[in-house]
Design a protein around this nucleic acid. Sequence first.
DNA 1: CCCCGCCTCCCCATTTATGGGGAGTTATAA
DNA 2: TTATAACTCCCCATAAATGGGGAGGCGGGG
Lengths: 237, 237
Amino acid sequence: MSAKVEKILERLQTTNTLDDLQSLIEHIRDTYDTEHVVYHSVSGSGQQYGALTYAPEWVDYYLEQNYTRLDPVVLGAIKQFNPMDWKRLDWNTPTKRNFLGEAISAGLGNQGYSVPIRGPNGQFALFSVNMDMNDDRWAKFTNERASDFLLLSHYVHERANRITGETDSFTMRDLSPREHDALAFLGMGEARSRIAEKMKISEHTLRVYIDSARFKLGAANTTHAVALAVSRGVVVL
Amino acid sequence: MSAKVEKILERLQTTNTLDDLQSLIEHIRDTYDTEHVVYHSVSGSGQQYGALTYAPEWVDYYLEQNYTRLDPVVLGAIKQFNPMDWKRLDWNTPTKRNFLGEAISAGLGNQGYSVPIRGPNGQFALFSVNMDMNDDRWAKFTNERASDFLLLSHYVHERANRITGETDSFTMRDLSPREHDALAFLGMGEARSRIAEKMKISEHTLRVYIDSARFKLGAANTTHAVALAVSRGVVVL
DNA sequence: CCCCGCCTCCCCATTTATGGGGAGTTATAA
DNA sequence: TTATAACTCCCCATAAATGGGGAGGCGGGG
């Protein structure tokens, strides 16, 4: 582990409030001498939290415009396992180009690197660094620090979860095997009649399982139950 | 980064087949002088792959008994973000105790440490080390190597994905904003009538969006479409 | 032993979703 | 300009899901 990470992790131990986290993020920015550092988390229940060094006006504007829906960094990160360089993302639509222009006007550098972080319950977070640099130096910069950023993203996320009270482990009445199977089949697009056949039970019984799974998950209808189960990783498609 | 990790990552560069990966896992076991090392992955589409040092009979028996359903390590890991010590898991049911007894008979050590790994599309994997050791030494052992295991789990998973051909990023015809919104509302459990109200369109129009989203996603029905969209991260609940 | 949760089966009536048609506007890209 | 795709609205008939009942067997934990 690099000395830089070690020092940051030490400081992380005493990070106990959102303000601490904010200044830790700024500390990371200073340590790595980048323009910006961003930590942004979306929990399974839709609650968002971020600690970042962008200009507040840009953050407000971004949220106002609902840019999560079209920001290539977010859209790309959700579909990837590996950390990614912003250059390799798809910027080839007018709206995205426009977004890029606005971002740069807001003081963002031309280079970016983001680490996707996934937790239970469909929790998703991003740890990004951003700065102005030419391509060659940037490639070297990110390459040498890839492991640092990986570790930092993990520990920062863990700490943020602890501070915001996101429970690390998940409390939900567990689904019974049959309920689980029923939701899994539903998620695969099977019709009730076929699921009943496959599970070798009557369609009536199947209904009981779907209903009780719905109840346990607090879902309004079957689609909702399946969506919750999938997003929480209870059923894997 | 520790020298050990560095050497393993170097070797990882030339790991190009499943056999290579198997021997890499054995190499990790030897490097850290543990009893066992396990990498086990379940892709979004349900395909499983593992590279591990357990006795083949135990692996076969485990799969045969469908022990993923009750193995506290798996059940615990799915609900956690942090790596975990096996001691802290719930072993307090007869079936689980029985499982533990069988595992130890099969040559597993009394101590274990597992790192959960999550990828896009509901991909989930585990990287575990196992050995015989007393509690104090084990606590020290895992504590000192926590970062190593974190990095190893990431890079091993990435490599395994590459070898098994799991696509890192997903190509799919993009959903239009209205289609996206429709699926998002459906995932939140709203009924069509209310969604139409919220989107300020007629229910007929809403149907057109749901249908075209279904078509684009290749889904059999609405529930399927929502499940796919959620599991692929196209819509975030 | 008893309770609780799981598993299984059935009925009725109502609401909702789906299948299969058609049609017009607007904006953007080739 | 001419597609192409997104966005909007409508009808009819059938299939599927939901709400609200009830009931019995089986196994594990307190």
